[in-house]
């Protein structure tokens, strides 16, 4: 009897190893992308578009799991602790590079706990103001803000949000401290900008383009180094008074550390295919952005970019003396 059981076990193990070698081809089950923000937001939208196209390339379902909380650090932490098999991934934005400076008690290492897969997109931001704001162009806005710095108010979507980072960089660049009005997310901030309760803000094209085109708010400049095709009238901030200014809400895809290189390579290939997908390109254009060039949708490019961004934001955040915990 015991012998029979042993034989059975050996046969079973052999059978399993055969199937395993068959299934060596990654992926053999659905892949989950963790989005560390609520469903329906701009990062979630980017993730869902990319996931849809990636699943066509991987021939496996790519699921989105929204794990919101604490500025994206809850979701990122969960992926950091997930097994490094390529079935749990993280799609995070610029927050991945600012969290180490904003959170003193981070439960993970933003660089060491992840294997980068590739960059996805740089969503441009726009400087926008309430409809009846006096300044006619970016230069006027800067001089108006400087002379009325006790009166002008700047809205942002909360500590550590992209709009907060952009505002900090802007104030540092023009060397003027303004009254900052934090909101819980972009929606309420935009609501008060439309209602004329606050003066101006800097937010992603994802949120501002339709309001600008509808004539509900005034737009002054984009924050990227190049102009944005969907908003051709807007100059870059770099050319319109703040030389060297550049902020983009860049998005990257990560696997947990220890993910085997072939798996990472396969995922990179799927990501690159997704970024060339016609629907993805079209929807990204609707959002006022575009996929990164293929040479940036690589592990090396994301790793280098993450390091650079951490080094860029650390001194700015430190100087402002803010923490999110």
């Amino acid at each position: 009897m015991a012998l029979k059981l042993k034989q059975f076990l050996i046969a079973f193990a052999a059978a399993v190893s055969v199937t395993a070698s068959h299934a060596n081809e990654f992926p053999n089950k659905p892949v989950t992308i963790v989005v560390p923000f609520a469903a329906g937001g701009p990062t979630d939208t980017v993730a869902r578009l990319v996931a849809q196209a990636m699943s066509a390339n991987l021939k496996q379902t790519v699921l989105i799991e929204n794990v919101g909380g604490a500025g994206g650090t809850v979701g990122a932490g969960r992926v950091a602790r997930a097994p490094g098999d390529g079935y749990t991934l993280l799609l995070h934005h610029i927050g991945q590079s600012t969290a180490p400076s904003l959170y003193r008690k981070l439960t993970y290492d933003a660089v060491g706990d992840f294997e980068p897969i590739g960059l996805i997109t740089d969503v441009p931001m726009t400087i926008v103001a309430r409809k009846d704001f006096p300044a006619k162009n970016m230069q006027e806005l800067i001089s108006y803000v400087k002379t009325n710095k006790d009166k002008v108010t700047y809205a942002n979507a909360g500590i550590g949000s992209a709009s907060h980072l952009c505002g900090m960089l802007f104030m540092t660049s023009i060397q003027t401290d303004l009254t900052t009005v934090p909101y819980k997310g972009t929606g309420p901030a935009m609501n008060d900008l439309l209602g004329g309760q606050v003066d101006f803000m800097c937010d992603q094209t994802t949120n501002t383009t339709s309001q600008i085109k509808g004539g509900k708010i005034k737009a002054y400049a984009v924050t990227t180094k190049t102009k944005v095709p969907s908003l051709p009238d807007l100059p870059t901030l770099d050319s319109a008074g703040v030389p060297g200014f550049e902020v983009g809400v860049w998005h990257g895809l990560y696997a947990p550390k220890g993910t085997p290189t072939p798996v990472v390579d396969r995922l990179t290939k799927a990501l690159q295919a997704a970024l060339q997908d016609a629907t993805v390109k079209q929807r990204f254009a609707d959002l006022g952005t575009e996929p990164v060039t293929l040479n940036r949708a690589t592990p090396e490019a994301l790793r280098a970019h993450l390091r650079r961004e951490i080094d860029k934001w650390a001194p700015i955040i430190k100087k402002a003396g803010i923490y999110a915990d």
Partner: peptide, 21 residues
């Protein structure tokens, strides 16, 4: 509310820009 945020997400995924237009 959060449900309306999801509806906005659904519109964007469909290629419609929610907004005054």
């Amino acid at each position: 509310n959060p449900v309306m945020a999801l509806m906005i997400g659904a519109m964007i995924l469909q290629g419609i820009q929610p907004g005054p237009s």
